[in-house]
């Protein structure tokens, strides 16, 4: 008997509509676009800084516009969402086994959070917030 397998094509543009879990995945991916745009804004800020005080003051003023504030809040929310979901899967990517037991997820994820807070405080301190 000869074989004649039938191939079902997967659409490269609409595949993620097939399952809610694919939609959730895509939603999370889309949030990172905001973080990407935020990074570009920071680079623009650096460029303005190199052009002198007036340029930089204008840049800071633009950041305070209502549209910018809404965007920054969204970007912050998405960045937090990405960070939390990322740290929470850390125990999967970096399991630590002690003897016959795995370190509790709390400890592995928790140490990431602690490091995160320490680094954030350091950056804020360095930036002169305190």
């Amino acid at each position: 008997m000869s074989r004649n397998p039938y191939v079902r094509e997967v659409s490269p543009t609409t595949w993620f509509f097939r399952m809610p879990r694919y939609m959730r995945y895509m939603a999370r991916e889309v949030t990172s676009i905001f973080i990407g745009i935020f990074t570009v804004i920071m680079l623009v800020g650096l460029a303005r800084l190199s052009e002198g005080q007036v340029e930089y003051e204008n840049f800071l003023a633009a950041l305070r516009s209502p549209v910018s504030l809404v965007f920054l809040l969204l970007a912050l929310a998405f960045a937090l969402y990405n960070s939390f979901t990322w740290f929470n899967v850390a125990p999967k990517a970096m399991p630590i086994q002690v003897g016959e037991e795995l370190m509790p997820d709390m400890v592995v994820a928790g140490s990431h959070y602690v490091l995160w807070v320490i680094l954030s405080v350091f950056v804020l301190f360095w930036a002169g917030v305190f």
Partner: peptide, 25 residues
């Protein structure tokens, strides 16, 4: 790209997504 669907459907709780992230690390 760590969609994680493999681990959700695995009937034996292998958690392939975890294995792949460990290989990446």
């Amino acid at each position: 790209t760590f969609v994680g669907a493999c681990s959700e459907v695995c009937p034996k709780h292998v958690d392939p997504a975890a294995a792949l992230q460990q290989v990446k690390v």
